[in-house]
Design a protein around this nucleic acid. Structure first.
Length: 270
DNA sequence: ACAGTAACCTGTTTGC
DNA sequence: TGCAAACAGGTTACTG
């Protein structure tokens, strides 16, 4: 579900509600999501004050003086701020309880994860080898160009690999390749530097635009207040198989890459 | 090191 | 209409 814009939208949404707040307790209703939820999480977090809410790739980091709660929303996870008296629903797995409200994780498909580390979260196994942030300066065409030489993997799978760049999932990879007129099945190693320049610009622009619109809501995603994002209205190719290309009107084609659908225009993207 | 596939889950949509 | 298969925003683990 959530790609970088949705996670950033969530971060911005929850931050004012939890930052500086003291955790009263943690309620877990399942032992395991993508990975086991740390036992003793309640003991570790209770009485701790949230000192900041950060994001690295699609991971949310809730910092305290004694450690960091790491949350990844997987495919169908969402966080919301609920009233302290609101009853938990079917797929509400974890509550971080504050005095006035609750930070509640809901995830029907359970691909999300909740982890705890008392060390620098960026050195955690899952975060340590992540690629650059797409909206930071270190994400450049040069970086992609050099990392992709001699790689036969498709350019789409390449940019969706979090070790190359974080935060680019199926929706925004599909859109950025369309904007930069690159065929998604082409080998990453055959893409020229000027083409990577176009692609990097497209990724940055699309992510910024999507964040401004509160992310993309297709079915599961909701913001912390339960409202949807509005970027889906801007999608030019994702989910538009057989519909006309917005540039040339040729019907868009879909194919499978791995277990992911990719949609593209056979005339515009080469 | 790299590429491809299976796996983790459940809810919704599609197709016969 | 009913049922089963296909599909869904992610990422790691495993295989060759």
């Amino acid at each position: 579900m959530p790609e970088l814009p949705e996670v950033e939208t969530t971060r911005r949404g929850i931050e004012p509600h939890v930052n500086g707040q003291k955790v009263l307790s943690v309620v877990t209703r399942t032992k395991k999501l993508r990975w086991p939820i740390p036992s003793q999480l309640n003991k570790k977090l209770s009485q701790q004050v949230i000192t900041s809410v950060n994001r690295r790739g699609k991971y949310l980091l809730l910092n305290t003086d004694s450690g960091t709660l790491i949350i990844h929303l997987g495919m169908s996870g969402s966080l919301r701020i609920t009233d302290a008296s609101a009853a938990a629903q079917k797929h509400d797995h974890v509550d971080v309880v504050f005095k006035k409200n609750i930070l509640r994780l809901r995830d029907p498909r359970r691909f999300s994860c909740v982890l705890w580390t008392s060390k620098d979260p960026l050195s955690h196994k899952l975060l340590a080898s992540l690629g650059p942030e797409p909206l930071e300066e270190e994400f450049t065409a040069q970086h992609l160009y050099h990392a992709s030489r001699n790689r036969r993997i498709s350019v789409k799978d390449f940019i969706m690999n979090s070790h190359m760049v974080v935060g680019v999932g199926n929706i925004y990879a599909t859109e950025a390749l369309f904007t930069s007129k690159i065929h998604p099945l082409r080998a990453a190693g055959k893409i020229s530097l000027p083409q990577y320049e176009l692609l990097v610009s497209a990724i940055k622009e699309i992510l910024v635009d999507a964040i401004q619109r509160g992310g993309t809501t297709l079915r599961d995603f909701t913001r912390e207040d339960g409202k949807p994002g509005y970027f889906q209205q801007e999608l030019q190719v994702y989910g538009r198989t057989k519909q006309p290309c917005v540039v040339c009107a040729h019907p868009l084609r879909s194919t499978k890459q791995g277990q992911r659908t990719t949609t593209y225009c056979t005339k515009c993207q080469r």
